[in-house]
Design a protein around this nucleic acid. Sequence first.
DNA 1: CCCTTGACTATCT
DNA 2: GAGATAGCCAAGG
Length: 112
Amino acid sequence: MNIFQAKFDPCIWKVVASIPLGQVMAYGEIARAAGYPGYSRMVSKAMGRCPDPLPWFRVVRSDRTLAFEYGSDSYREQSQLLKLEGIRFEGNKVIAASPLDTVDKMLWGPRD
DNA sequence: CCCTTGACTATCT
DNA sequence: GAGATAGCCAAGG
């Protein structure tokens, strides 16, 4: 087994599992929260290998778009799961607060 | 050892 | 705001 991912992967999965329902986190944010700033691409690898019932669908890009190709099976699956969490979409971008964001951002919405 | 590849990001046009 | 570019870092050929 690779030494790196033996330590890295569980650390990343732990952070992903801690993402509150209805919220999302970017790869870079997760890497930073796990103590590996700059390892966004390694996070993506760790995600592709997660066998656990992890809320992987709460992981999006830093610009809030989904990492999968638009229209692909994985894309539709993820967007579906996110909608079940009450998360709305703005075109291809999700509208959800990051756990690191302030409450102010959560209060923002199309509804007045 | 060199080059390519990724569920990525920040920056510039 | 969309596309191109350059960093990023480990893994694999």
